[in-house]
Design a protein around this nucleic acid. Structure first.
Lengths: 103, 103
DNA sequence: GCCTATGGTAAGTACTACCTTACCGTAAGG
DNA sequence: CCTTACGGTAAGGTAGTACTTACCATAGGC
């Protein structure tokens, strides 16, 4: 939901790998675990963090659960980074023009 | 430099507070520490992580060191998030149109 | 040359969080 | 109803990390 939780969630390499595995579309938990060097419970736990950060959604398919990227958390993160980027750009230009408060 | 290190650097709340303190322009280490509930060495250590992630630059001013936002790391992070965002948007539209590979 | 201000580094500690194994719940098939 | 497949949860071990205090290096004023 918030950019804080999104940053926290994507900071871990394994969790980021789980997240990026969903780039192509929805994937079941077991499938993800097969392709990563961690156990299935570990993947489950990562998916929970990602879900609480609004980065991932769950859809039931019988006994399986298909996870896919959620735009919600991504939007929050995007807004944060974009805002900072624009602000930094302005500060940089001001600095270049000598408008920045020096000393 | 890389989006990985940027994500890792910005995941910590205190380190993010240090980073965001530089929004308005360059600030000295001691000044940052005064306004945060952590010691000056802690701030120094956070600044090192931020610098190694390309998020922050250092400029010497006599015995003081002024830190400011570096566009380099921000650019890497921005590219990562933006790329993921666009891809997720496409996947979402494909899903909505029933073009996504179901089942 | 000495003293002070500023801040980076070292060493130690406490806490967090990531991973594992073990266990449990549930849906589908015979 | 029993078995199997799938996956979430619990408990515990371990490694990483964020903080502190103590120490050291350097620039500038007197």
């Amino acid at each position: 939901m918030t950019y804080e939780s999104a940053l926290h969630a994507l900071a871990d390499p394994t969790r980021r790998a789980v997240f990026e595995r969903l780039r192509g579309g929805a994937v079941a938990v077991g499938r993800i675990a097969e392709e990563l060097p961690v156990s299935r419970p570990a993947v489950s736990q990562h998916l929970r963090v990602l879900r609480e950060a609004g980065l991932v959604r769950e859809r039931r398919d019988g006994v399986r659960r298909l996870y896919s990227v959620d735009l919600e958390g991504l939007r929050a993160l995007r807004r944060y980074v974009e805002g900072f980027w624009n602000e930094a750009l302005l500060a940089f230009k001001a600095e270049a023009e000598g408008t920045g408060k020096k000393r």
